[in-house]
Structure formats: C-alpha cells, structure tokens
Design a protein around this nucleic acid. Sequence first.
DNA 1: TCGAAAGTTGCATAG
DNA 2: TCTATGCAACTTTCG
Length: 520
Amino acid sequence: MAHTCIHWFRKGLRLHDNPALMSALKDCKELYPVFVLDPFLYNDTMGLNRWRFLIGSLRDLDCSLKKLNSRLFVVRGKPGDVFPRLFKKWGVTKLTYEYDTEPYSLSRDQNVTQLAKENGVEVIYKVSHTLFDINRIIEENNGKPPLTYNRMQSIVSSLGPPKKPIPAPTTDDMNDVSCPSSKDEEKNGIPTLDELGHDISSLTEELFPGGEEEALRRLDEHMKKSQWVCNFEKPQTSPNSLMPSTTVLSPYVTFGCLSARTFWWKLTEVYQGKKHSAPPVSLHGQLLWREFFYTASVGIPNFNQMKDNPVCTQVDWDTNPEFLAAWREARTGFPFIDAIMTQLRSEGWIHHLARHAVACFLTRGDLWINWVEGQKVFEDLLLDGDWALNAGNWQWLSASAFFHQFFRVYSPVAFGKKTDKNGDYIKKYLPLLKKFPPQYIYEPWKAPRSVQQAAGCIIGKDYPKPIVEHDDVRKKNIQRMKLAYAKRPPAQSESPSKKQGGKRKAPSVVDTLNKKAKSK
DNA sequence: TCGAAAGTTGCATAG
DNA sequence: TCTATGCAACTTTCG
C-alpha cells in the first residue's frame, strides 16, 4: 500500500543526511513536507536575527523541495491542534520526523504520536541531529551521562565512528511521489518578518544567511583550507578578530541546515593522511563538545536551571536588575565586554572565547548574577542558541558544573588585550571610543581628562564608568564561590559490596536525586 | 583506599 | 616574544 506522508521539519532543515525524510519517500504516493510555526518555540522573545535566519532556512528548503517538484507547507499553530486537522484534510497515513532530545520536544512528540495513533497514522522517527544516539551513550556509561570530556571520549571511542551521512533525495527518489497543493494551501507559505509584526529597521547586514545551500557552501569554503583545518586548535583562535576566526558553522548545525555527521566525515576526509590536531581542541573535538553537552542535557534533569539540577552547584546569586540590564545592553563601562554584547545583538554571533568573557563577567567574575539570566539573553540573541549547549556552557563558565577552577577568573581588561592590543575590535563595535589611544582603550576611565576630551568622549557622561571595581569584586566573588562549594553535598561513593553480582547498573543522576530527596 | 594527576582557552610578573 | 612560577585552590578520575 502506498502512503500519504507528512515529513515534519523542526530542526533538521535540510535534505542531505535526512533519514526520516528518506523513509517518508519509501512506498509513498503523496508527500507533504511540513514546518509548524509553533508559538511555544517561535514567539516575541526570539530575537530578530534568529527569526531572519529561520525564515531564510525555510525559504531555502522550500526552494530545494521545488526542484524536486514539491514544496514546503509552513503551518501556523500548535502541533497538537495542527496535526489532527492535517491528518484528516490530507488523508495522511504516515508521519516522519527527526528525533529531538529537548524536554519540550519530547513531550510535544509524545503528544503528536498519540494523536497520530488515534488517527491511524504510522509514526517513524530517526536520529540524525547528533553524531550518535544520545541514549546509547548514556547506556554505555551505565545509565549516567559522562561528566568529563575524557570520559565522554572513551565512551564514544567504544561506539566506533558516527554513522556515515546519507545523500539528499533526487528526482529519481520522487518518481512515484506526487505533491498535491491546492489553492487553499497558499496561506501555508513562508512567513515574512513583516507579516510576523517585527520592526525590521534595526536589522543590520545579513552576515550569516540561513539555509542548507549556504551551510554546504560555507562548509566547502572552510574544508578547502586543509592546512587550516589540520592545525585548528580552538584556544588559539581569537575572540576579537574583525573577521570570525572560526568557521561560524554553528548556526547551521543548530538549525540542522548542516548535518553534524556530514561535517564530521568531511573533516575525516581532510585529515586523511595528514598530521592534524585532536580533540578536545580540534574541529572534530568541537563536534564532540556538542555531543558531550547533548548527553548531559538528556541525562541530567532540569538541565537549564539551577534549582533541582543535581550537578549544578547552588550559589547565592544576587538579584540585581540594574546590573543585568547594563550587561545585556552593553553599558557595563568595560569596553571589551560592551563591544562583545554589541556584536552579539547586532550580528547574532560572537566567538566562543568572547562568550567566556561575558559569561564569566555576568556570573562568578564580576556581577554575581545567576547564569540562568545570561542563558535567556543568549537564547534570544544567538543564531546558534541551542538549548543543551547554552545551558551546559553557562554552567561551565559560572563554575556551577563541569568546570570547577573558580579561582581562574577572566579579566574584562586583560583578556582581550592578548589578541587585540590596539583595541580595533572595540573601535569597530563601540565607535564612540575609537579616538582613545591603545593605552586607554580597554580602560578609558583611567585616561586623563585631557585625553578624554581629545577623544571626544567623557567617561561618566558619553560612555559609562565601570559598574564594578574588577579587582575588588573578583576577590570577594572567589570567596563567595568557595563558600558555595563548601555547601555542596559530598560526592556519593559507590560502596563495593553493591558491585557484587555481575553487571549492575550504576545509579543514574536521577536515582541519586530521588535518593537524596527521600533521605530528607 | 588514597594520593597524584589532569582539567579545551586566567592573570601578573620575572627572566 | 616566549616560558616558568606564584597566586589560591576546585573536582574527578585513575592507578
């Protein structure tokens, strides 16, 4: 029997390495490629740059599907309302989608699967957003997510290399498939920013256009530089170069315009027969970091919050709306920090180490504000804002989990100087300060009045004074962090007696949490 | 069981 | 310009 299929695009906005789409095309007479504009995920808090990237990606996908005599249906509404309607309207018998590990996605998909069942629709999903099946990694580590990169590496190496990506469907694959589209479907077109009620006047040049075509072009462009790829070491790249010092493929991987497995295997090809860098600093290593945080996010409950998160150190962060707003709006008085936050807002991408600098500054370094607040800002503004990576990295940088050397604090003055002595990056994003001599560009408040006047920028009037004294708060904060660590519950040691009896599953983080709750 | 070593990317200073 | 050291000092893993 030939099926009438919906392939549901959520992430995975691509045709290449899309096994769920390929299984939709099997025994298929009618195909409906659908994207649902779910108001839970796509709403007013989502930043404009992110909206532009999403819409660009949808447009590109629609374009590619049209080359296969199909199209994309962008349906407005909640998945739980949309699907039963579409199942009936189109006489659907099969639904396919890419597996997604986020908590919201899991409950959404469970709900839609139930609705499909009620409508007699078969559901097929495939793992293709990550290199590996994340649940398989956790299984391999006795039911717990690895908490160190080293451990992650040894688990992963026991799994062997990730699966090879599969090619995109061709017109041959579409031979017996029709793509009905009535007049009535015109309302299910690609939205525009205007239609969504956004004020597009604040938009700047589109440096990173969304879409699979651009993703593959960008991948190709970087992979051509084989020496650069082989020598790549993340800590050696610059957070404040005027042009990105890394690939900026992350937004494309986040939205699934680029398959992580395609990226992985392309790197393997470039490495072949050459001396090359290795994880954690290599480009392969970067993809494994992504996998690492995905695994943590699946295995650790309440991963995007401090409360009820069993790996997260409980810290007595301050509630300080003024400080938070100053950080968010690039008016901390530290040019390096404010330049980064300006780039983030206008371009939607900042270098990984720049994220370190501003994240440390907001949390344990200077402002002592909960990392969860920073997480929200990044989620809205970053093109590559990814639920798991965002939560994981904020916990890392705030020394709440994974990373514990809280006495290593980034300086909002010294860190940037290492790679940009002249402050060209600051001058680019904060042109107000461009006439300050290099000597004062990172600390303009130290410039004599005459220098400030000559620069046409009076500190405290035209540009803010620093909102904290870094050396003071740094010392105080290290002590506060020490106190928070002292209150951490002692690590649970596994008693050897329990290890008897052959294979035994180690207690998962969830089990440990439940046990603790019971003992209270 | 316990001590040593490692941990993607700190800073300031001395040589 | 590079490397070593003190600073104060964390957790996890490994042998």
